[in-house]
Design a binder for these strands. Structure first.
Lengths: 292, 292
DNA sequence: GAAAACCATAGATGGTGTCTATGATGGATT
DNA sequence: AATCCATCATAGACACCATCTATGGTTTTC
């Protein structure tokens, strides 16, 4: 497994372009650093540097590893910092799945604010796994995410929705009620990289020997919808993400749907927040039942 | 400094609630694990567990540290995975500042796609610092971000824009051309946590002894605008983020503006991408000059 | 009071990061 | 072509440390 001190050696070599200067920078001798890089390469199973006697160069693997090494050390710094901060004022921390629509979320939270004018809400967007992890971590109190059969003490089921294919309003296929995979074979596809049915979508097309042309990939759904509206291509989205800038059509034979639930705290909320939490649950349940 | 193996010990104790069972889980003896946790606590300067003879409990510091420890190990797993992926087909990797508007970006990219139908574009949203880091890392080829006087070989200046205060269309202050800090004293404030003039905004209000009430905090600008539109409160945004769901007013005495630029690659692009990159630069320059 | 469970401490030992010394290689200079 | 210089790699010695076994201390249960 990896060692953090070796990551520091690695970064020093990248920054200086030389084992000798890097060794000076991290206050060890060159042979120590050389052995360290060799050890790291052994741990990872990839050569990270091409050695020459003028300077060293990152390999492809080294180039791919570089941002990750930085991210790891950054997280370590954040960890140390997190221990220096004092407790802050209590707020309700809500995670919202990135693929849930802005407008519905805005309306729901505005209604809650009207009922509870003095509450501060901190929102975190994330993938399903991120949100579950954050609930486990206690860095979130609640989360709105996809229901996968969890029991009532874990998650409060809210509503179901299906998936549709969205296109620009002036697209040739936009007037149809439904399209087939074959209809889309020559089209451009926008990949919403955090789509929870991404692999099902991919399989849907490959099962029918269709490979739409990929033109654009993003993790940001608002951007994806804007790109659809602008005519870059089409993409699969949950119904609730369809807005009046795009047109949705049914994708024949693609019958996936998702159920959205409010995930509850994994721990006993502090006393001040517990009643507020119960009111929040009630509020979300009422509004989502009425809205969708 | 921190050691990764000690983080694994820490997580095992959290998951099992016992040093003895945690030791079994990580395949060392209990005294080894005990000494390791003690070492980690020494490194961090904080006690992470309260010991009892029934089970151990996380301290406040331990609770704050837990999500960070997980994040570090997650990044380590990602790093190892990044080395397993094979080189993919070349794409143009563009970073877009999270506070740049979806519609303008969509229009610009759609126009580029019409000119270059066979290009795949991978978009990453990020803060200024993230985008600069990614350019340095070589994990991005280009970035659209804020110009801070960098020279022409680094960044191609595109356009300027100011900041405005946005409110719901039916807000009492929405009909004014301008508002003062005092006008907003009783209002609710939505904090766009990645706003590049966040500290200036804060200082603007505190300099005038105004403290608007914070109701909501998010890193996602689309969500923030939706919350404004829904009536949760108001917020400061660059002009280009104003859409037809909200109303903008001038904030008196708040004269900040930003210049947007296209940041260029920090390295020589591969031959295949180099000409494409030049065409991309030209395209962005022409469209932004015309549009804003 | 005895037994059980569990964390802490002590001492011995094998593994390892580090050092000094030296070797190998390639490019620049004479 | 020979020499010098810069730089990474290898070898061996050694101090440090993660780990083990053995034992101690504390609390709870029967």
């Amino acid at each position: 497994m990896m060692d953090l001190y070796l990551l520091r050696y690695f970064l020093a070599v990248v920054e200086t372009g030389s084992f000798t200067r890097a060794a000076d920078r991290v206050f060890v001798t060159q042979p120590t650093l050389s052995a360290g890089i060799k050890k790291l390469e052994g741990q990872l199973g990839h050569t990270l540097f091409e050695r020459s006697n003028r300077r060293v160069f990152l390999t492809d693997a080294g180039t791919r590893f570089l941002p990750r090494a930085k991210a790891i050390l950054h997280e370590c710094n954040m960890a140390v910092q997190s221990l220096e901060e004092t407790g802050s004022a209590p707020v309700l921390r809500l995670g919202i799945l990135t693929t849930l629509p802005n407008r519905a979320m805005g309306d729901m939270l505005a209604a809650f604010k009207r009922a509870e004018p003095h509450v501060t809400i901190e929102i975190m967007d994330g993938t399903e796994q991120e949100l579950l992890n954050r609930l486990d971590d206690r860095s979130l109190d609640y989360a709105l995410s996809i229901h996968r059969g969890q029991g009532a003490e874990v998650a409060l089921p809210l509503y179901d929705e299906g998936y549709v294919f969205v296109l620009a309003k002036d697209h040739a296929l936009a007037e149809r009620a439904r399209v087939t995979a074959a209809d889309l074979g020559e089209e451009y596809m926008i990949v919403r990289s955090r789509c929870e049915v991404l692999s099902e979508t991919s399989r849907y097309f490959t099962d029918q020997n269709i490979r739409p042309r990929l033109v654009y990939r993003t993790a940001n759904d608002s951007r994806a919808i804007s790109m659809v509206a602008a005519g870059l291509g089409g993409t699969v989205v949950p119904e609730s993400l369809v807005d009046d800038r795009v047109t949705s059509v049914k994708l024949q034979g693609f019958d996936y749907s998702r159920k959205i639930a409010l995930f509850r705290p994994k721990y006993q909320l502090p006393v001040g927040l517990e009643e507020l939490g119960a009111r929040f649950e009630k509020h979300v349940e009422v509004l989502s039942g009425a809205g969708n």
